[in-house]
Design a protein around this nucleic acid. Structure first.
Length: 225
DNA sequence: CGCCAGGCCGTGT
DNA sequence: ACACGGCATGGC
């Protein structure tokens, strides 16, 4: 699947951001939100000088709310972003470098304890902002796994770990030194194919994985004409 | 103009 | 433990 997606979409160069901190902001803002909307919020933040750690630290949460309004859920996301900076300051001297130096498991635990940070956001930050070799699972991967019958996807708490485990096993035979790169590219490709073909309603026309779908009795409710 | 988006979290059973 | 609904906003 990875090879087929890589051939179809090419190198993704993820995450789409200039700095590690911008990756983190994007990870929060894109929660259940179209990336297009996130781009507008990031543009607002940049124009206001709030795209940096110091900038976000300085801005009042009320003003932050206005800047990120395009990406929605502002009463949750604005305080959540401030909480991240608070953790960064309190435990890592305000330094992403120092945060990145912490052990993966402990760091993941600290991130998950933050408001507005669930498994996907924590892992996206770990992988794309901090360079830790962890897989990222999302709604697109869930749909792919179900529709292609890759596995019985559990519901509830076990779901995320199950999809993450599937990803880890898929790349387990590759060198440990390259895991981060593979997880990086795989999630990026998952989003690429997901945006084009794996919505709530599947759009199988032209999907690079269409061959598999033909033989999988797709679980999608219906295919858009 | 209704459906949807690169989740997260509280509440009810 | 898990299903379910709310959370905000704007693009398509």
């Amino acid at each position: 699947m990875f090879d087929r997606l890589a051939e179809a979409y090419g190198p993704q160069h993820w995450w789409p951001a200039e700095t590690a901190f911008e990756v983190i902001l994007g990870a929060y803002l894109t929660q259940n939100t179209a990336w297009k909307a996130v781009e507008r919020s990031l543009a607002n933040l940049r124009a206001a000088g709030a795209l940096t750690i110091a900038g976000l630290r300085a801005i009042p949460v009320e003003a932050l709310r206005e800047l990120i309004r395009p990406s929605g859920f502002v009463t949750r996301k604005a305080p959540a972003l401030k909480s991240f900076v608070a953790l960064l300051d309190a435990e890592f001297g305000g330094s992403l470098k120092r945060m990145a130096a912490a052990p993966t498991d402990a760091l993941r635990h600290r991130l998950l304890a933050l408001p507005g940070v669930g498994h996907e956001t924590a892992d996206a930050i770990l992988l794309y902002a901090l360079g830790h070799p962890v897989p990222v699972a999302d709604e697109y991967l869930r749909r792919i796994a179900e529709r292609h019958r890759l596995m019985e996807v559990p519901t509830g708490r076990a779901r995320y770990e199950s999809l993450a485990g599937l990803t880890r096993r898929a790349f387990a035979a590759d060198p440990a030194s390259g895991q981060a790169r593979l997880f990086n590219e795989f999630h990026a490709l998952t989003v690429a194919v997901g945006k084009a073909h794996c919505g709530r309603i599947a759009r199988c026309e032209g999907c690079p994985l269409a061959y598999d779908l033909e033989h999988a009795a797709t679980g999608a409710k219906r295919t858009r004409r």
